[in-house]
Write a protein that binds this DNA or RNA. Structure first.
Length: 896
RNA sequence: GGGGCCUUAGCUCAGCUGGCUAGAGCGCUACGUUGACAUCGUAGAGGUCACUGGUUCGAGUCCAGUAGGCCCCACCA
């Protein structure tokens, strides 16, 4: 689109359709996102939080990936070798569930087809749907280095997983043991502590009588929220110092419904104040009881099957019942025996499977664990000594707390989809082999070996992501050039699951922090403040938003609504209200550029325009641009993307479009001669080009498209690699131009205000007088007269020595000290004018009073910074001046 | 039971190291087809910055407490 005709045929309304795809295709064709490890001088690397391979894009992805793209594009434009590593996660439970559900439609379970065929089927699924989200990221404009796309089950990454398992095992940091773990009876697998989500449940506390075995009529009362577990009780405990009850220690009770005799023991865990002071002890079904059992060498009676039905260790009457069914039955039976003493409401929290929502069952089972303490120490140290930073900072507390109270990590999962645990058991002797390469026989006795059937927790591969994606454990050029990475952007809810563990893994296996800055973004919510979710049906499909409003509009809206550390609300029922801001802004940009293109020539586009030809407004907008560029750069460096968006928006719309374009129109048309036209053209082109750069990280498509339309440029050009903003922007500072133009804006503002107050027909041009304007403002008025006349709908704007006394008209006294007068013979309303002046006097008086009070306080003058005192004096003086003028005016209108 | 966050215009929220005559977008009211833009322009109304106390020359901003809302963590049955 380089020829003249096309250029001038840009439609008045910006339509993202038909622009985004070709622009993205151009970037890809040129390999614009790829960086060769051999050529890396100043790396900037982000590893994407790999979405689940079966996931479809939602707004959370929209936000997070926009943030990452902004950061990557910003650094790429600044000349860094920016690499954004994309990929997906095999997401063990989630993916297995999806495929199982799919199979269920055919009436099949995974057990019907067997392990190998099931895994094949998941792979087919992944091959078919696995690239969906990657394609969606492209639609959003994400500038990932697609040549580096990885999947956690790739051969290389799987190798890394094995390497880590073997290393940790050799170091004694991985062990296998029988412990109480969180078990999901629906997914039929162990879960880690993090995967059990605690929810407050409005439950009951049941008080049950356990008769003493050899004393008719005597009993103890235990309290429990899960009465069905009594079938597995193997003791009753009291606190060793419980005065009331410790005399019973050593006696036996007869477990109702079961008949087993169990001992009363003394254990510190019991809170003598709670309930009756007796605790039923079920070592196989409660983590605390398990610990008690260890201390007292209690029997562990496991009464439940994996699917949470009652098992063979329980009395036959209950076998086969689901746990909740069994609870009901147990309660009924206790009730009929007169042993259920009391039922009270009791709120408590119960773990739920983070994938399917089923209430987790604490279950005794043989699992693999990672010892976390030794890994946590260096990870904590890295945070404490400031090498690892969180944005917002407060998440450091959360991280620190988790690291100091971290518990061992259960990593084995009874699933089929995932990395198989690299452990083999000998079928002949008790040999166990933990090895990188599949063994063919037992290394001790030569017997046949069989691999552990379990797979590893998904997060056991995710925690290696920042380096496994770069080829670790091999010493690859990518590892050499691109590791460690720099920024990690993610949602706070996976701080423990993922972020904390990556830090541990990075330090343990590579000796480096995997990244230095962790950006935790907010949550996308609906208008009621609820999280967006499939089940609530309140989600927003980013692709629909892109289709209707454009990717840039979506990205701008997301970035500008998400201040660092805060959640953002979007209306899923009214996408228009949610994304209008971004769409309108894109349209504004489009039209501003469209306007510029009507006047600019190739010669206008040059380096920083600093010639003496520059006029006041040129110097003003250049100064404003320099300030904006500095603020935006600073904001992006500090991860304050919202500020960057806000600042540019205000500059482009509120200063560039509202004032500069308006003031410069006549000059661009050549009304003031070629010298003036070319100064305006050069300035316009420079500033336009400049803010396109500033906005490119946030709105890559429209900025690229517009950039290529600028005179002398074509599709071969690109903003992708910057430069970010021209060097030497400091030289553009022009405090004098800034204050002069502010003075002009005030005058126009006052005229518009007066017109509006007096209801003057917008089509009627008025003559205006200005007195007492500072010299610089007066000069500026003369320079920019025609523009000002148009903006204020004035027929004339005269600089006068003083406003003629007694003439009927409207007055305004400005902050610059200038006085604006609008003669209104026959129109002016004396009463109204008097009121206007009076209220202005009142306002200024109260302002002045406050200011004086401050200045009269010697402590303020002595202790406040000189700059503040100076400003206060100026404010005071300006108020006084304006007041005295207004008082004079009032005299003219009578004191009323 | 611990820890954290929030409470600023009708709505959604900015306001980072205390100096504010408290901002933005949307909405509202009035007016407007001004040759880039009605996805626009102009003006306006609208706020005791939750409450109470403290620190300070000065507090929306810091500290303590109160009230309301939210989140994270947690093996008291």
């Amino acid at each position: 689109m380089t020829d003249e005709t096309t250029r001038h045929e840009l439609s008045a309304r910006f339509d993202s359709t038909g622009i985004e795809a070709p622009v993205y295709a151009r970037w890809l064709e040129r390999g614009g996102f790829h960086v060769d490890a051999a050529n890396v001088a100043a790396p900037y690397v982000i590893a994407i939080p790999p979405p689940n391979v079966t996931a479809a894009l939602h707004m959370g992805h929209g936000l997070n990936n926009t943030i990452q793209d902004v950061l990557v594009r910003f650094q790429r434009m600044r000349g860094r070798d920016a690499v954004w590593i994309p990929g997906t996660d095999h997401a063990g439970i989630a993916t297995q569930n999806v495929v199982e559900r799919d199979m269920a439609k055919e009436g099949l379970t995974r057990h019907d087809v067997g392990r190998d065929r099931f895994v094949d089927r998941v792979w087919e699924w992944v091959d078919r749907y696995g690239s969906t989200i990657i394609e969606q990221l492209k639609t959003m404009g994400c500038s990932c280095d697609w040549e580096r796309t990885r999947f956690t089950l790739d051969e290389g990454l799987s190798r890394a997983v094995r390497e880590v398992f073997v290393r940790l095992y050799a170091k004694g940091l991985i062990y296998r043991g029988n412990y109480i773990i969180n078990w999901c009876p629906r997914c039929l697998t162990a879960l880690s502590n993090e995967e059990a989500e605690h929810q407050e449940i409005q439950g009951k506390l049941y008080h049950i009588r356990y008769p003493l075995a050899d004393a008719e009529g005597e009993y103890v009362v235990v309290a429990t929220t899960r009465p069905e577990t009594m079938l597995g009780d193997t003791a009753v405990a009291v606190h060793p110092e419980d005065e009331r009850n410790r005399n019973l220690v050593g006696r036996e009770v007869e477990l109702p419904l079961v008949g087993r005799r169990i001992e009363v023991i003394a254990d510190e865990h019991v809170d003598p104040e709670f309930g009756s002071g007796f605790v039923k002890v079920t070592p196989a079904h409660d983590p605390n009881d398990f610990e008690i059992g260890l201390r007292h060498d209690l029997e562990r009676v496991d009464i439940m099957n994996g699917d949470a039905t009652i098992g063979d260790e329980a009395p036959s009457a209950y076998r086969g019942l689901d746990r909740f069914e069994a609870r009901k039955r147990v309660l009924e039976d206790l009730e009929s025996l007169g042993l259920l003493v009391e039922v009270e409401d009791h709120e408590h929290s119960v773990g739920h499977c983070y994938r399917c929502g089923t209430a987790v069952e604490p279950r005794l089972s043989l699992q693999w664990f990672v010892r976390m303490k030794p890994l946590a120490e260096p990870a904590l140290e890295a945070y404490r000594d400031g090498r690892l930073r969180f944005h917002p900072e407060r998440f450091g507390n959360t991280y620190e707390y988790w690291m100091t109270s971290v518990r061992d990590w259960c990593i084995s999962r009874q699933l089929w989809w995932g990395h198989r645990i690299p452990v083999w058991y000998c079928q002949e002797c008790d040999g166990m082999i933990v090895t990188l390469d599949d063994p063919s026989a037992c290394t001790t006795c030569g017997g046949a070996v069989e691999q552990d059937p379990d797979v590893l927790d998904t997060w056991f591969s995710s925690w290696l992501w920042p380096f496994s994606t770069l080829g670790w454990p091999a010493d690859t050029p990518d590892m050499e050039a691109l590791y460690p990475t720099h920024t990690l952007s993610t949602a706070p809810e996976i701080l423990f699951f993922w972020v904390a563990r990556m830090v541990m893994a990075g330090l343990e296996f590579t000796g480096d922090l995997p990244f230095t800055d962790v950006l935790l973004h907010g949550t996308v919510r609906d208008v009621q403040g609820r999280r967006m979710s499939k089940s609530l049906g309140n989600g927003i499909d980013p692709l629909e938003v892109v289709r209707r409003f454009g990717a840039d509009a979506m990205r701008f809206t997301l970035v500008s609504s998400a201040a660092l550390g805060t959640d953002l609300q979007l209306d899923h029922e009214d996408l228009d209200s949610s994304f209008r801001v971004g769409r309108n802004f894109a349209n504004k940009m489009w039209n501003a550029v469209r306007f510029g293109l009507g006047y600019l020539t190739e010669d206008d586009l040059q380096t920083v325009p600093t010639d003496t030809r520059l006029e006041l407004t040129d110097r003003w907008i250049l100064a404003r641009f320099a300030a904006t560029a500095a603020a935006v750069t600073d904001a992006l460096e500090r991860f304050r993307l919202h500020d960057a968006a806000e600042t540019t928006y205000q500059f482009v719309w509120g200063e560039f479009c509202d004032w500069y374009l308006e003031l410069v129109k006549a000059r661009l048309r050549g009304d003031r001669g070629e010298e003036s036209r070319s100064a305006a053209g050069a300035t316009l082109a420079f500033v336009l080009d400049g803010w396109l750069r500033l906005l490119h990280p946030i709105m890559p498509f429209i900025t690229e498209e517009m950039y290529c339309h600028l005179p002398g440029r074509n599709d071969e050009d690109s903003l992708l690699h910057g430069p970010w903003a021209a060097a030497d922007l400091e030289q553009l500072a022009a405090a004098d131009a800034e204050s002069a133009v502010t003075g002009l804006q005030e005058i126009v503002g006052a005229v518009r205000n007066l017109r509006s107050d007096y209801g003057i027909d917008p089509s009627k041009r008025v003559g205006v007088m200005v007195a007492r304007a500072p010299a610089s403002v007066a000069a500026a008025v003369a320079d920019e007269l025609e523009g000002l006349l148009r903006l204020g709908r004035m027929s004339s704007l005269e600089i006068v020595g003083s406003i003629p006394a007694g003439e009927p008209g409207a007055h305004a006294v400005l902050r610059s000290g200038a006085e604006v007068f609008l003669p209104l013979a026959g129109i002016v309303d004396i009463e109204k004018e008097r009121d206007r002046i009076r209220s202005e006097i009142e306002r200024l008086e109260s302002l002045l009073e406050g200011s004086r009070r401050r200045l009269e306080d010697p402590r303020f003058v002595e202790q406040a910074p000189a700059e503040v005192v100076k400003r206060e004096r100026e404010k005071s003086r300006s108020c006084e001046e304006r007041l005295s003028l207004l008082v004079e005016k009032r005299a003219v209108f009578g004191s009323g």
